[in-house]
Design a protein around this nucleic acid. Structure first.
Length: 313
DNA sequence: AAGACGAAAGTGGTTGA
DNA sequence: TCAACAACTTTCGTCTT
């Protein structure tokens, strides 16, 4: 693992899967995970996106794209398009400015500063977006998600949905919506946890803005939690594979509908840990998955019964 | 002693009248 | 608007390893 950390310093280092020695690891920024292309092993979740957001593929593109300055981004209140006025009183040749010029520049700077985050909605947006970036880096989410969150938040502002709600609450709700939209498995609990807003409020705001903005969001697929949970529990790639297999069967039998996705994923991971002789206690799993042991028990009892698994304990 | 099990009561949200 | 309801949680006593 220490090796991995070092290699990560290099921008495009290639490294190989320690599990199967056969696949190459790829960074999946969408899910914030490092994944083996061969066996599907997830090395590290909460990967932080350090790369550039835009790339070039040949010299021509490079020149084109180099010239435009920073990419525009929705994660800054002015989309990163603001101009900076240097604080030094020098002109482009590095010579001192005349007193007359100096006074003019001083006035420009003053107004520039005032205009940038002047009216309340801009101020609001600036604060909300700083919250978003705080939360998403806390959760190890990628830049993509941040952008998506920012777009959703902006829409919420446009539709005047913030009124009567806290900025943090709506920001957290937008983040959650962006995660759901991008199929990144983060639970409402996790987001509420670091947002400093109650789960109730985040949930309420989330449903509200999702409805008002007509963001159609597919229900969470319990499958998406399996890599994360098994990774958190240090389960092997084959155990994870087994879990995915079980989940597939459960889905075919219609056992997934109406059930909490996290509880279901937790139960499946539990069963596969037992099946593969890598037993984890219900307690450990419940902690990793954020559900109670009771729920895991209920789900896995159902699963064993319906899938007619014989479990040797 | 730790883990697994299950009963009973409580919680927050959805649904349908 | 309110009650019924399903899923899940909390709590706690009992059994198993």
């Amino acid at each position: 693992m220490a090796e991995l950390e070092n290699q990560e310093e290099r921008e495009d280092a290639v490294f190989y899967c320690p599990e199967c020695n056969n696949g190459v690891l790829i960074k999946d920024y969408v899910r914030a995970e490092l994944i083996c292309t061969n066996c599907g092993l997830v090395i590290k979740d909460h990967l932080v996106d350090t790369g550039p957001e835009w790339r070039y593929f040949n010299q021509e593109q490079r020149e084109k794209r180099m010239r435009v300055g920073g990419p525009t981004t929705y994660t800054m209140h002015d989309k990163g398009l603001s101009t900076l006025i240097d604080w030094r009183n020098k002109d482009s040749q590095g010579k001192d400015l005349t007193p007359r010029k100096r006074a003019q520049i001083y006035r420009l700077r003053k107004w520039h500063r005032r205009i940038r985050v002047s009216d309340p909605s801009e101020r609001n947006l600036a604060f909300a977006l700083s919250e978003v970036s705080r939360m998403s880096s806390n959760l190890g989410l990628s830049q993509n998600i941040r952008e998506e969150t920012a777009i959703i938040y902006r829409k919420a502002v446009e539709h005047r949905l913030i009124r009567g709600r806290s900025i943090e609450g709506v920001a957290a709700a937008a983040l959650y919506a962006a995660c759901r939209k991008g199929k990144i498995p983060r639970t409402l609990d996790e987001i509420a946890e670091i947002s400093g807003v109650g789960k109730k409020e985040v949930g309420r705001s989330y449903r509200f803005i999702a409805r008002e903005l007509k963001i159609e969001i597919p229900p969470i697929n319990p499958m998406e939690f399996i890599p994360r949970f098994s990774n958190a529990l240090n389960l092997s790639g084959s155990a994870q594979k087994k879990a995915i297999e079980l989940m597939q069967k459960a889905y075919e039998k219609g056992l997934t509908s109406g059930r909490g996705p996290t509880g279901l994923a937790a139960a499946v991971v539990y069963i596969s840990s037992v099946l593969m002789n890598e037993r984890r206690t219900q307690r450990e799993i419940s902690e990793a998955a954020g559900v109670t042991e009771v729920t895991i028990r209920n789900r896995y009892k159902e699963l064993i019964e319906k899938l007619e698994l014989e479990i040797i304990v």
